[in-house]
Amino acid sequence: MAVDFETEIKQLRTTMASVREVTDLERLGAQIAELEEQASAPDLWDDVENAQKVTSAMSRAKAEHDKVTGMDSRIDDLEALVELGREEEDAETLEEAEKELASLRKAVEQLEVRTLLNGEYDIREAVVTIRSGAGGVDAADFAEMLMRMYLRWAERHDYPTAVLDTSYAEEAGLKSATFEVKVPYAFGTLAVEAGTHRLVRISPFDNQGRRQTSFAAVEVVPLIESTDTIDIPEADLKVDVFRSSGPGGQSVNTTDSAVRMTHIPTGTVVSMQNEKSQIQNRAAALRVLQSRLLLLKKQEQDAARKEMAGDIKASWGDQMRSYVLHPYQMVKDLRTHHEVGSTSAVLDGDIDDFIDAGIRWKRSADREQD
């Protein structure tokens, strides 16, 4: 069946018009100009931390601008390629145009997903916490597999990350780990990864080679900003200090620099041990605690709004994705029904299609509830 290039190209242009509107290229261009001015200051590198922030923000803004404008150029080039193929009646050129159309469709769809990230905190950086659940040592190993999966995903996109805390299990894997993904829209992008993940495989820790099902929980919260009003009275905090530990419980620090912070009214607990000093760990713990309380506050407001609207159905199930390594290979999201057979690719960070499907699913569910 012949490809209707005119209709396909028209649809791509319509979608890109929405992408440009949301991206606001004029605002983005002004932001780039401002960052370039800051980056050209002769004393920029007197403050290394600020210099890195400025240059990273400039690089990301330019990449986002080029991604949108570059897509428009690719659509123009595709249109020219189709015209050339038809004028020359060249089947090979038209076949090349079909391949480029398929590639463009996927690229534009991924850009379109950004237009759906319009929640209150979607633009924020993200704090991700992974905890092992039921399943013993397999669950701890699974938590470490998920940690690697998300860090590899961030690495694929050149997103900077910072590991804030790692609590190692005794035999293998992690009891829990917390890390930041330090790019705009990280929260909106990764929020759909929150929930319970399930792993089914032949346990490498079972000498009888039996199949084991294990679970791990993923929590994603928006990073707190200085403009947020989350005041925590000192009386509501309990702060404990202890010695940092590495794999197998071994001490990695000879001083009591690790910090465990408990918010007494909600029972929320945050531990930090990856910074060098107790002061740095305390600051990081407070930042993550504020981020969690910020999201908790929003969830309470959303729950109250839904209750007033008479809508009390749950939108997130306890188990949102299954990773099956035996007796067959499959990763399936139980909300969106998106599934793939290449489990090794997914666990190596190839999760963009799952994230995109999740964002579309969540926005559709939100519209139904409004």
Rank of each mutant, 00 (worst) to 15 (best):
G358S: 04
R305K: 14
E307V: 06
H326Q: 11
A303I: 08
D350F: 06
D352E: 15
H337S: 13
E339M: 15
Q329N: 13
Q319I: 15
D302T: 05
I351C: 02
P327K: 00
L295M: 04
K298H: 06
R360Y: 02
D356Q: 07
I351K: 05
L347R: 04
A309M: 06
I351Q: 06
T343L: 01
L334W: 14
D356Y: 10
K313N: 10
H338R: 06
Y323T: 01
A304E: 12
G310W: 14
R321M: 10
L296H: 13
A314I: 15
R335S: 13
L295K: 02
D356R: 07
G341H: 13
V331L: 01
K362S: 10
E300V: 15
G317R: 03
K362T: 11
A314V: 13
D311Y: 09
R360K: 14
G358Y: 03
V340Y: 11
T336W: 00
Y328P: 04
G358C: 06
V340F: 13
H337V: 06
I359K: 00
A309I: 02
D353S: 07
A314S: 13
D333I: 00
R360F: 00
G310N: 03
L325G: 09
L334V: 09
L347E: 04
A357R: 03
V331H: 05
Q329V: 11
Q299L: 12
R321L: 14
E339T: 13
G358D: 01
D318K: 05
T336Y: 00
E339W: 05
Q301K: 14
V346H: 09
V331A: 02
H337N: 11
G310C: 02
I351F: 05
Q319P: 04
D350S: 12
V331G: 01
D318H: 01
R335I: 10
I359T: 01
D348P: 12
L334I: 08
D353I: 03
Q329C: 06
H338W: 04
R335T: 11
L334Y: 09
I355F: 01
L296G: 07
R305Y: 10
A303S: 11
F354H: 01
A304F: 12
F354V: 00
L334P: 00
A303Y: 09
E307C: 03
W316N: 06
G310I: 13
R335Y: 00
K306R: 15
I359G: 03
E307M: 09
A345N: 08
I359M: 06
K298Y: 10
G349L: 04
L295A: 08
I355C: 05
D353W: 00
S315Y: 10
L296Y: 08
